[in-house]
Nucleic acid binder design. Sequence first.
DNA 1: GCTATTTCTTATCATGTGTCAATGGTGCCT
DNA 2: AGGCACCATTGACACATGATAAGAAATAGC
Lengths: 193, 193
Amino acid sequence: MYELLHQRISEIITVTDEEFEFCKTLFQPKKLRKKQFLLHEGDECRYTAFVEKGILRTFSIDEKGNEHILQFAMEGWWVADLYSFLTNEPSTYNIEALEECELLLITKPSWDLLFEKIPAFEKYFRIILQNSLIATQRRLMGSLSESAEEKYEKLVAAYPTHLQKLPQHMIASYLGITRETLSRIRRNIAMRK
Amino acid sequence: MYELLHQRISEIITVTDEEFEFCKTLFQPKKLRKKQFLLHEGDECRYTAFVEKGILRTFSIDEKGNEHILQFAMEGWWVADLYSFLTNEPSTYNIEALEECELLLITKPSWDLLFEKIPAFEKYFRIILQNSLIATQRRLMGSLSESAEEKYEKLVAAYPTHLQKLPQHMIASYLGITRETLSRIRRNIAMRK
DNA sequence: GCTATTTCTTATCATGTGTCAATGGTGCCT
DNA sequence: AGGCACCATTGACACATGATAAGAAATAGC
C-alpha cells in the first residue's frame, strides 16, 4: 500500500526505514469508488491525499452551472485544496474520484507533526510545490496567450496516455472551453490529416 | 538595505542575528533603473531576486509579438523564472523593472548553501511557494471561468492601490485581454455609475 | 513651453467561441 | 434484448473579444 509513496519520497530526500515507519503511522488509507467525493464544495478540506492508485479531479462550479477543472490528480501525485487545508476555511472546490482510487490521507495536525519530527519533509514538499508552481504558471500563460486549438494540441503532446482515460467533456473543461468547441477542434485536426 | 528582507523572513520563521548575518553574505544588492531588465528571454535565470523597492514584471512575447504578463513583483516579493533558475535551461521569460528598483540577488549555489546551513529556510520557502501556488491557481481558475469584465473587477477589488501605478495596457496583458477591450470595459463600468 | 513619444480611447469590422437544440453513439443494467 | 443514462457530434445563430486604423490625451525630453 505504501510502496509508491515510499518510492516518490525517496526520489527527492533520504529517509531511514525507521523514519518512514513513523511517517506511515500518520496516514490513513482510504478507498474511493468511481464518482465518490474526497471533498465537497463548502466543506473544509481536512485531508491532503497521496494517490496510490486511480485518478481524481479538482473542480469548481460557476454561477451558470459550468464545471471548471483545476487539475487532475494522477497516481503518485498529491491532491487537496491547499488553501482550505491550511486555513480551515470552507473550500470552493470539489474533489472527485474518476475511477476506483486508493488514497493515503493525512490531516493537518499529522502534517505539522511530520515536519516537526522529520524536517527533511520540508524539503520534500518545497520541491513538490516548486514543481506544481512551475506547471501551474505554464498553464496560466497558455491560457492567457494560446487559442483553444493550441492548448488542446499541447495537452495531447504532453499527456498522450493520460488523456485516453478521460472523457472529452472533462478535457474541455480542463482547457476552459466547451465540449462543442473541443469537438470542432478535433474534427478540424482530423480533416487536416 | 536588508530591513524588509529581515522583516519578511521573521514573519514566517525565527532566525538568530548570527544566522541572518550569514544570510546577508549570500545576497548581492543590485539597482535597476526603469525599463532595465533583470532577465532576458533566452538567457539562463542566474538569480532569484528579493524586491526591496520598486516593481517588476515577468512577461513573455508570443509569435504575434503580443506581450503576456505572468506576474508583477511588488516590494517584499520574490521574483525569478523558477524553472530556468533550478535547471539552468534558457528562460522563456523577461523580467523588467517598471520603476527604479532595489533588489537583493542570490545565485543558485548560494541558495543551496542557504538551505544547507540554515534548514529553517526550507520551511520559509515552502510557505512562500504554498502561497504562490494558491494565488496562481486562483488566477488560473479565474482565467478559465470568468469574463474579461469579471476578471478586471476582481483585480481592482484585490489590488486597488497597486493598480494605480500600472499603465492600462499592462493590466490588460496581465488579464489576458487587449488594451482596447479593457478600455471598453472601463467605459461600461463608468457609464453604469 | 513645445515637440515627440507613448498611452488611451473610439469606431468599424472580422472571427473564434459560446449557446441552444437536435441527432446519433456507446455502453450499462436488470 | 430492450431501455436508459451518458457522451460526442453537428448546425444555426449570438455575442464577446480581437484586429485594424485613426485620433485624443497624457507624459517625457529638450
